[in-house]
Design a protein around this nucleic acid. Structure first.
Length: 567
DNA sequence: GCCGTTTTCGGCCCGACTGTTTTCAGTCG
């Protein structure tokens, strides 16, 4: 959906320019919000090209609707282009340097002649900056550090990198004298696919000791903030970690606050104000304290059910009247996507089965690659037949679990599958996935994936877009049409839990769930330890509001087998 | 620029910390 992405960029840039030119912060916020709406939209904005549909979206008013329509009509937004002419383009990069906000960048530009990061660096070296207001030695040193940090940083960390790191930090802090409760919060707790920084919340009888331990942790390369209640450090891999210490009595309010999202918090505060109450990280108060110890208490006092962290994105969760029974890790009873040494996996069929048994699964499907995935040692049709025999033999040998014979079949660029129907018909489960030609245009991708979804022998569409987080965009099919076909044909859409993939992504899952499509949450096992990545898939599923009954991996053995046979 | 269980005009979340100043502006989350 290129139009959505373009409009997101346009509104984001408009917000940035307006900040620099000193427009009202509320106007800036409005554009930033419009950008976010564009990124959250699961349908092509071109389908909403009339004023009425656009105005129905929260955060889109008259002005934004006009600009969207103008973009769809002409391919550009006039006011956006006019705004860009008002500032040197490189200034937008300067604004991204931590510690430099709109006020400072404006002064650098207007009074210091800074137009981009390069000219800022030159001014730092020549000492020009010292002449500007509020530019002391410390500030200049910090700017220098921040420029180096931005240059070396890889940007946002993947959930699969940040979560294990956060768990190690929590473990480290729990061992510090006086610590009573340590928990990570922020976008990590919400299960976002990438993480800007790690937020840790703590209660302790000895705050000073905890802060010092935190600032001296292994891997800390710079202490950014060292306050009474807040510490902030930069770690070696280029990730920032914030520690906040609170009283146990307000742990819930603080956890709520530091889990965010910011938009969710703002909405809660506005709700509090309407109820003549006041919400901050210390609690919900009226004439006297109302709630603070637990998140559930605060929500209840605001007339809301407990809202799971993954839903806190202002995507409709504030209209809930009860907590939805979202899927949980423990609901998963079957893994339907796993590789063995026959293709590019590291385990034998039996080793794979033992891992699955250890996790309490009733079923594991062996789904090795098809021939077109040459680099993954995909199985030729003949090898597939032999492999099926080996799987059946293992199934007979190991009674504690059902081992299904399957394959992960390549969906070729034109939509044809990599095995003929005779071979596919011999399999218990067929995952069809795109692995090559991942740069084809949106129409070709839609046609290709629709062909697989409609194929009567395909059970699951595997990692539908083929994207890799932070490194490959993947296909950009018309998701709405894929979902429609998936519902019509009873084909499941996969959430590939591999933390580099998370494909479908959260917003796609949400759209699929609302349309009533079946979802498969699979780990795409290649090594024993991959089973542990399931949690990332579950977080993504929860962010998509998935309930267990809509996920085929939660079904009883009987129901699952029935579905597989009757497809 | 958006929005309405006070409002179609007049609001729009709140607190910690830093650095440069002497009482607070700017940034961040």
């Amino acid at each position: 959906m290129p139009a959505n992405a373009q409009l997101e960029r346009i509104f984001r840039e408009m917000a940035a320019v307006l900040e620099l030119t000193g427009a009202s912060g509320f106007r800036v916020n409005a554009y930033a919000r419009a950008a976010r709406v564009m990124s959250d939209l699961t349908v092509d904005v071109a389908l909403l090209a009339d004023r009425k549909s656009l105005l129905a979206i929260d955060g889109i008013g008259d002005g934004t609707a006009k600009k969207i329509i103008q973009y769809l009509d002409t391919g550009a937004v006039q006011e956006h282009q006019e705004l860009l002419e008002e500032i040197p383009h490189g200034l937008l990069e300067v604004l991204k340097i931590p510690g430099l906000g709109p006020r400072s960048v404006r002064i650098l530009w207007k009074q210091g002649g800074v137009t981009d990061v390069a000219s800022l660096t030159r001014s730092l070296e020549t000492g020009e900056l010292e002449k500007l207001p509020r530019m002391g030695a410390k500030t200049i040193s910090n700017i220098r550090d921040s420029i180096a940090f931005v240059a070396s940083s890889k940007g946002r960390a993947r959930l699969g990198e940040a979560l294990p790191l956060a768990e190690r930090i929590v473990e480290f802090l729990e061992a510090v004298d006086g610590a009573t409760r340590i928990q990570y919060a922020g976008s990590l707790r919400r299960g976002c696919e990438t993480i800007g920084d790690i937020d840790i919340l703590a209660s302790t009888t000895r705050p000073g000791v905890l802060h010092r331990a935190f600032q001296g942790m292994p891997g800390v390369i710079k202490v950014l903030v060292a306050g009474e209640t807040r510490s902030s450090v930069r770690l070696e891999p280029g990730i920032q970690v914030d520690l906040r210490v609170v009283e146990p009595a307000s742990f819930g309010a603080a956890l709520l606050y530091f889990t965010g999202s910011r938009e969710h918090n703002v909405a809660l505060r506005e709700r509090a104000i309407r109820m003549k109450l006041h919400l901050n990280e210390y609690g919900l108060t009226g004439d006297e304290p109302v709630a603070a110890a637990t998140e559930a208490e605060v929500y209840a006092a605001l007339g809301l059910p407990y809202i799971p962290p993954e839903l806190r994105e202002v995507r409709g969760e504030l209209d809930l009247t009860e907590t939805p029974p979202l899927i949980e890790l423990g609901d998963i009873r079957a893994e339907l996507h796993a590789h063995t040494i026959a293709s590019d996996g590291g385990q034998t069929i039996e080793e794979l089965a033992r891992c699955a048994i250890a996790r309490g699964y009733h079923t594991i499907a062996v789904t090795d690659h098809s021939p077109s995935s040459g680099q993954a040692n995909g199985l030729s049709p003949d090898r597939l037949l032999e492999h099926i025999d080996a799987i059946k033999a293992a199934d007979a040998k190991i009674p504690e679990i059902t081992i299904l014979a399957g394959a992960e079949v390549d969906i070729l660029a034109d939509g044809h599958l990599d095995y003929d129907d005779d071979h596919l018909a011999r399999l218990d489960v067929v995952i069809a996935s795109p692995h090559s030609a991942l740069r084809q245009d949106a129409d070709a991708a839609t046609t290709r994936l629709l062909a697989a979804l409609r194929h009567p022998l395909v059970h699951v569409l595997g990692h539908p877009t083929g994207r890799l987080i932070n490194s490959r965009q993947g296909l950009q099919p018309d998701l709405a049409r894929l979902i429609e076909a998936a519902v019509e044909h009873g084909t499941a859409l996969e959430i590939n839990a591999n933390s580099r993939r998370l494909d479908l992504r959260d917003t796609h899952v949400r759209a699929a769930v609302e349309a009533g499509a079946l979802i498969a949450v699979n780990t795409d096992v290649h090594r024993a330890e991959n089973f542990d990545e399931l949690r990332y898939g579950i977080m993504t599923a929860r962010r998509g509001w998935l309930r267990p009954e809509q996920c085929v991996n939660t079904w009883s053995s009987r129901k699952l087998l029935e579905w597989l046979r009757n497809r």
